[in-house]
Computed example of a mutant assay.
Amino acid sequence: MATTTTAISVSTLNGRHHKTALTVFMVIVVAHWAEHLVQAVQVYAWGWPLAEARGVLGVPFPWLVTSEWMHYGYALIMLVGLVLLRKGFTGSSRTWWNISLGIQVWHHMEHLLLLLQNLSGLHLMGRPVPTSVLQLIWPRMELHLFYNAVVFAPMVVAMLLHRRAGSHSGATCTCAVAH
């Protein structure tokens, strides 16, 4: 009796599984983005002190907010997702996806810098806590709202363009919506 195994490769992720992979990826991205938005609401709308404003999951699990490993892991997942799913995009949707990828490369480097400082105990510019480059001029919560917005916006534009049948020329997936 012969058995067949279906391996998910980069080709299948960007072909017949592209729509599913993009959906899973976007659920992860939107959930993370929602955590940052909830934290901002907790601070700016509800007046919570920053130390208590930990988003939805951070309230019952405070270590999530303070874990540099968790933040770095998410930045890495974003980077890997953007790289792995890139091949499925063509034309102007690829351009927008590449913009998101480029910004995420920087965002990832900032999180790597934070993680390395956390592990070594040596902090940028002698700061008392791990500090990213742009955090030298912008508070961390607002900076990460900004990073998530500027990575998310071109990603959404890329996906909307990608789903338009007329912009889907050369793509090997079935993401396009017929008009």
Rank of each mutant, 00 (worst) to 15 (best):
E110V: 10
V83K: 06
S92I: 03
T90Y: 09
T90I: 12
M125P: 00
L113P: 05
T131E: 09
P139M: 00
V151P: 01
R127T: 14
Q104V: 10
R94W: 05
W97Y: 07
S120R: 00
F89K: 03
I103G: 01
A75E: 02
S67T: 14
Y147L: 15
L101V: 09
F146C: 10
P130K: 04
L143W: 11
W138F: 15
G102C: 03
P154V: 05
V65I: 11
G102P: 03
Q135H: 04
V129Q: 15
E110G: 10
G126N: 14
H144W: 06
H71L: 09
L143R: 04
I137L: 13
W69K: 06
L122H: 09
L113I: 08
A75D: 06
G91Y: 02
V80Y: 01
N118M: 12
T131W: 03
S120P: 05
M125T: 08
S93G: 12
L79Q: 10
Q104E: 12
V105A: 13
G73C: 02
Q135L: 00
I137H: 04
T95L: 09
Y72T: 11
W96K: 09
P130R: 11
L84I: 03
I103V: 15
L79H: 12
G91T: 05
R86W: 02
R86Y: 08
I77F: 14
H71D: 00
V65G: 04
L124C: 01
V105D: 02
G81F: 06
F152T: 15
F146W: 12
L116P: 02
G126A: 11
G91V: 13
E110C: 02
L145S: 00
L113H: 14
N98H: 04
M78C: 04
S100M: 02
A149W: 07
F61W: 13
G73Y: 07
T131H: 06
H144R: 00
P154L: 13
L64Q: 00
A75I: 03
H123Y: 15
G126F: 03
T66R: 13
A149C: 13
L116R: 15
N98T: 15
L124W: 01
E110L: 07
F152E: 08
R94L: 11
G73T: 01
A149S: 13
Q117N: 07
T95D: 07
N118Q: 11
P130G: 10
M141F: 07
P128L: 03
I103F: 14
L136V: 08
T66Q: 13
W97Q: 06
T66D: 15
E110K: 04
P154W: 04
K87Q: 07
V151L: 03
V150K: 01
R127E: 14
V105M: 01
L134N: 07
A75R: 00
L76D: 05
S67H: 09
E142P: 06
L112F: 15
L112D: 05
P62M: 05
Y72V: 03
V65Y: 09
E110S: 11
F146Y: 11
L114Y: 09
L114M: 13
